[in-house]
Amino acid sequence: MVIRRFVEEDADETAQVIAKTLRISNSPDYPAENIEANISSHSPDVLKERAKDANMYVVCDNENVVGCGSITGYWGSKTESILLTIFVLPEYQNKGVGRKIIETLESDEFFLRAKRVEIPASITACEFYKKMGYTYKNNIATPGEDGCIRLEKHR
């Protein structure tokens, strides 16, 4: 498996990875209408747009995208960053792919310059991020209006 920077040609396949992951992995924690709204907010066009401001990566098994993740400045901050769009196909979960994505994001320039890095995590992914050293922001372990739980890491 190889992890590399996202290119526009990856957008359709990456959006399909996200949709499949949301529908399978996140369905126990979220109603179908939330899943479908989240899929819509990760369309190929949205991913292409996000990649203009964020450093976005894809994990490939042979030529197939099996995971993705991105990092960017948090609301334009130079001292805070945010991890976004982290997804791994269900059949590749628990095989080190997510860890590889986080390790790549944590070696990225946006991470290295930050004093604090936040991630809006799904209920489904919280335990994974906690294993990676992230803690609940303000000790709040319940989802916000967007359905995400905010975790953070201070450097």
Rank of each mutant, 00 (worst) to 15 (best):
F6G: 02
F6L: 04
V7R: 08
A11H: 08
Q16T: 03
A19L: 09
K20G: 00
L22H: 06
I24P: 01
S25A: 15
N26Q: 03
N26E: 01
P31R: 12
S41G: 00
P44D: 03
D45W: 01
L47C: 06
E49Y: 08
D53V: 14
Y57I: 04
Y57N: 03
Y57H: 04
V58C: 06
D61V: 07
N64C: 12
V65A: 13
V65N: 06
S70N: 05
I71A: 08
T72W: 01
S77C: 11
T79V: 13
L84Y: 12
F87A: 03
Q93N: 05
N94R: 12
N94L: 10
N94S: 14
V97I: 15
G98C: 11
I101T: 02
T104F: 10
T104D: 06
S107P: 00
F111K: 08
A114L: 06
S122Q: 04
S122N: 04
I123N: 05
I123M: 06
I123W: 04
I123Y: 08
A125R: 00
C126V: 09
E127A: 11
E127I: 04
K131M: 04
K131A: 07
M132V: 03
T135R: 14
Y136R: 08
K137W: 13
I140Q: 09
T142Q: 13
T142V: 15
D146S: 13
E152F: 06
